[in-house]
Simulated assay, not measured.
Amino acid sequence: MNVLTEKQIRASFLNASRREASQAVLPDLDTVPWDRLDHLGWRDRRSPLSAYVVVELDGVPAGVLLRASPAPASGRRRSAMCSWCRDLASVGATLYVARRGGSAGRAGNTIGTLICEDFSCSRNVRRPPTSAESGNGIEAIADQVVAERIAGLRERSVQFVRDVAATC
């Protein structure tokens, strides 16, 4: 992912008002490992149910304001597979819902998906493949498995943002 500035991130939101975009609490951009990211995702420190994700859509940053599902009363979440990285991450996946862009969003239309709770998808797809995934572990096959995972993550995350931007 290309390095983004605060101004680029705030201007990228497709489903947030100017006020929501200006009040977003951004991560420390100087510590972001840009070269190992397929999307930038983070939870808002001030509002634990608010989250944000930014992907590159046709070479331009496109951001989405998300709402996380609240923790169940029991405090225990069910295990779920992330629909972006398709990994059963140790942190688990949670349902994130985004208001659609434009008039559809103003009418209350939303779209949701399961994403790693801490947005660790980029790290998950880069982990070494298991023997079940790559056979006897030939390095070229392992590299191909990781490359396919990265491509899938990018495709699914970008498609979600496209779906948010699409008006009904």
Rank of each mutant, 00 (worst) to 15 (best):
Leu14Pro: 02
Glu6Lys: 00
Ala166Gln: 15
Pro61Phe: 02
Pro129Arg: 02
Val54Ser: 05
Ser12Met: 09
Gly135Ser: 10
Asp58Tyr: 09
Val54Leu: 07
Arg123Asp: 14
Gly137Pro: 00
Gly152Tyr: 02
Asp35Asn: 00
Gly135Phe: 13
Cys116Pro: 10
Asp30Tyr: 08
Asp38Val: 01
Cys116Tyr: 15
Ile9Asp: 10
Ala24Ile: 01
Arg156Met: 02
Asn136Gln: 09
Glu133Val: 04
Arg149Tyr: 15
Val55Asn: 14
Arg10Ala: 10
Lys7Gly: 06
Tyr52Lys: 00
Ala73Glu: 06
Val125Asn: 00
Ile138Gln: 00
Leu57Ser: 00
Phe160Arg: 10
Thr110Gly: 14
Ile9Cys: 15
Thr113Glu: 11
Arg19Phe: 15
Ile141Phe: 01
Asp35Arg: 06
Asp163Trp: 07
Asp87Val: 02
Asn2Met: 08
Val97Cys: 00
Met1His: 09
Cys85Ala: 14
Leu114His: 06
Thr31Gly: 08
Ala93His: 07
Arg86Asp: 12
Glu148Pro: 04
Thr167Phe: 13
Ser69Gln: 13
Leu37Ala: 10
Arg162Ile: 07
Gln23Ala: 04
Phe13Asp: 03
Phe119Tyr: 15
Thr167Leu: 05
Glu6Asp: 07
Pro61Ser: 01
Leu95Ser: 14
Thr113Tyr: 05
Arg19Val: 14
Val145Met: 03
Arg10Cys: 09
Val97Gln: 05
Gly105Glu: 06
Tyr52Arg: 05
Arg77Leu: 04
Gly112Cys: 12
Arg156Glu: 04
Arg127Thr: 01
Pro128Gly: 15
Glu148Gly: 02
Val158Phe: 08
Ala89Ile: 05
Gln144Val: 04
Ser90Ile: 09
Pro129Gln: 05
Pro27Leu: 12
Val53Ala: 03
Cys168Ala: 08
Val145Gly: 12
Glu56Gln: 05
Ala142Phe: 01
Val32Glu: 02
Val91Gly: 12
Ser134Cys: 05
Val91Tyr: 13
Glu133Thr: 03
Asp44Tyr: 04
Leu14Cys: 07
Ile150His: 04
Thr167Arg: 08
Val55Thr: 01
Arg76Met: 14
Cys82Lys: 09
Val54Thr: 10
Asp58Phe: 11
Asp58Val: 05
Arg76Asp: 09
Lys7Leu: 10
Arg10Ile: 05
Val53Gln: 08
Val54Arg: 08
Ser134Lys: 01
Asp30Phe: 13
Asp163His: 13
